[in-house]
Deep mutational scan, measured.
Amino acid sequence: MTYRVRIENADGEVVTIEISADELREKGLTLEELLPPNARIVEVEEVEP
C-alpha cells in the first residue's frame, strides 16, 4: 500500500509526498515522525501501488 501525503510546512507551503507502507515499516517510523519541525499533515490518501 502507498500513501499520498499532503504536508504543510512552517512557511505555509503545501507539498505532496508518496511513501509506501513497506518503507515506513523498514524505517520503523510513523508518518508523523517523518515530518520536519513545525510541519503538519493536511491530508493522507491511500493509493494503489
Results as ranks from 00 to 15, higher is better:
8 E>N: 03
49 P>E: 11
28 G>I: 03
29 L>T: 06
13 E>V: 13
30 T>P: 06
30 T>V: 05
47 V>M: 10
32 E>A: 11
40 R>I: 12
13 E>I: 13
15 V>L: 12
41 I>R: 03
39 A>E: 02
10 A>H: 08
17 I>M: 09
14 V>P: 03
45 E>G: 04
5 V>N: 00
6 R>N: 03
47 V>C: 07
33 E>H: 07
9 N>Y: 15
22 D>R: 12
11 D>Q: 11
28 G>D: 05
5 V>H: 00
42 V>Q: 05
35 L>Q: 01
47 V>G: 04
28 G>P: 02
44 V>K: 03
7 I>M: 08
24 L>P: 01
25 R>Q: 07
46 E>M: 15
39 A>I: 11
29 L>Y: 06
28 G>M: 06
49 P>F: 14
18 E>Q: 07
33 E>I: 05
44 V>R: 02
23 E>C: 13
18 E>R: 06
10 A>W: 11
12 G>I: 00
14 V>E: 09
19 I>W: 04
6 R>K: 15
39 A>L: 07
5 V>G: 00
8 E>H: 05
6 R>G: 02
19 I>V: 09
7 I>H: 02
16 T>E: 07
35 L>D: 00
22 D>H: 11
4 R>M: 05
3 Y>W: 12
23 E>I: 10
41 I>S: 02
19 I>C: 03
35 L>R: 02
46 E>W: 13
15 V>C: 13
27 K>A: 09
5 V>A: 02
47 V>L: 11
20 S>L: 07
44 V>T: 03
25 R>K: 10
24 L>V: 05
8 E>G: 02
34 L>E: 01
8 E>M: 15
28 G>H: 08
7 I>E: 00
46 E>D: 04
13 E>A: 10
1 M>W: 13
36 P>A: 05
28 G>N: 10
41 I>E: 01
23 E>G: 04
2 T>C: 11
49 P>R: 12
12 G>P: 00
11 D>E: 10
36 P>W: 06
3 Y>L: 11
31 L>W: 06
40 R>L: 08
8 E>T: 07
40 R>M: 07
16 T>A: 04
48 E>G: 14
19 I>M: 03
36 P>V: 03
8 E>L: 15
14 V>D: 04
33 E>T: 06
26 E>P: 02
21 A>T: 06
15 V>Q: 11
11 D>I: 07
27 K>H: 06
43 E>R: 08
18 E>C: 11
47 V>E: 03
34 L>A: 12
10 A>E: 14
23 E>P: 01
17 I>R: 02
